[in-house]
């Protein structure tokens, strides 16, 4: 079969569209989602306020590179929202289709699942950008700091470049879910593990060396630090923004390919036995 980009673009857009149509039938969820990052950041902010001693802001700056702990934590929780959405929308996607009973129907059409996953990723990307941006600006208003500080465009570039390896990583995780079928437990565990490793509430510089190496292997770690450095000037891992961005570009190229390779292998394995529709 010949490959026509336009045909696959139609599949991507159609797959994103049905996810939007579905969520728009639950409008309350869209609104409530925007409060999650604010509440998520508010918890450590309030703990910090309750326990802060003299020179708390200086101590925070010494460890993180900024005295603005509220913006630091809110950025962390907003980026975590993007990561969490990626897990629940993309890694969980096949399981969602399986539970809905539509997964086999998707395997009956002459399109590789990767294109439908791309549509689901597009949906997740738009929804999570919207949610995290609203949460960031609303949170800034509630907590009382200026959200327009730093280099907003560069922060956005870090987010956008980070999306692709993030979805590549979640596709890989989706393949694992397809195989072992323990979706909720796996996604739940992994999103918290990633939130810990990407440094939602603290800089990864405080990790012991072995944990730091693991954290560096996750694209969300680079996304979070890139956004924080662009907005708050906490300092790039490699010293310069373009070097950190180059690392993210490396993930950009490798993670989707690796995810695709693993996904295909798992798919063949599953189809060789009971088939993809089995729970």
């Amino acid at each position: 079969m010949k490959f026509y980009w336009k045909l696959y673009l139609v599949v991507i857009l159609a797959s994103a569209k049905i996810r939007f149509l579905t969520i728009l039938r639950y409008p309350g969820q869209l609104v409530l989602d925007t409060f999650i990052p604010i509440i998520f950041a508010a918890l450590p902010i309030l703990i910090g306020r309750a326990t802060e001693g003299a020179n708390a802001a200086e101590a925070f700056q010494r460890n993180t590179g900024t005295p603005n702990y509220m913006a630091y934590l809110l950025i962390g929780s907003s980026v975590f929202t993007i990561v969490s959405f990626a897990f629940w929308h993309v890694a969980y996607w096949l399981r969602w289709e399986q539970e809905a009973g539509t997964l086999e129907a998707l395997y009956l059409v002459p399109v590789h699942r990767i294109w439908m996953a791309a549509g689901t990723s597009l949906y997740s990307c738009i929804r999570s950008i919207f949610t995290s941006f609203v949460a960031y600006f609303l949170g800034a208003l509630i907590l009382g700091f200026n959200p327009w500080q730093g280099e907003l465009v560069l922060a956005l570039v870090f987010l956008l470049v980070g999306f692709v390896p993030l979805y590549g990583m979640t596709l890989l995780y989706g393949a694992v879910i397809l195989k072992v079928k323990e979706a909720n437990a796996l996604v739940g565990l992994m999103q918290w593990a990633v939130s810990f490793l990407m440094g939602v509430f603290f800089p990864i510089s405080i990790f012991p060396p072995f944990l730091k190496i693991i954290a560096y292997l996750f694209p969300p770690t680079w996304m979070t630090n890139g956004v924080r450095s662009a907005l708050l000037g906490v300092g790039y891992f490699m010293g310069n923004w373009y070097l950190d961005l180059a690392v993210l570009w490396g993930f950009f190229l490798l993670a989707p390919l690796f995810g695709y390779w693993v996904f295909n292998r798992v798919e063949v394995q599953v189809r060789s036995n009971e088939g993809i529709g089995q729970f």
Binding site: L7, V10, V11, A14, K17, L106, V109
Partner: peptide, 9 residues
Amino acid sequence: LEYFGALYH
């Protein structure tokens, strides 16, 4: 039907 039509190009 329209979604599956799109998947069949």
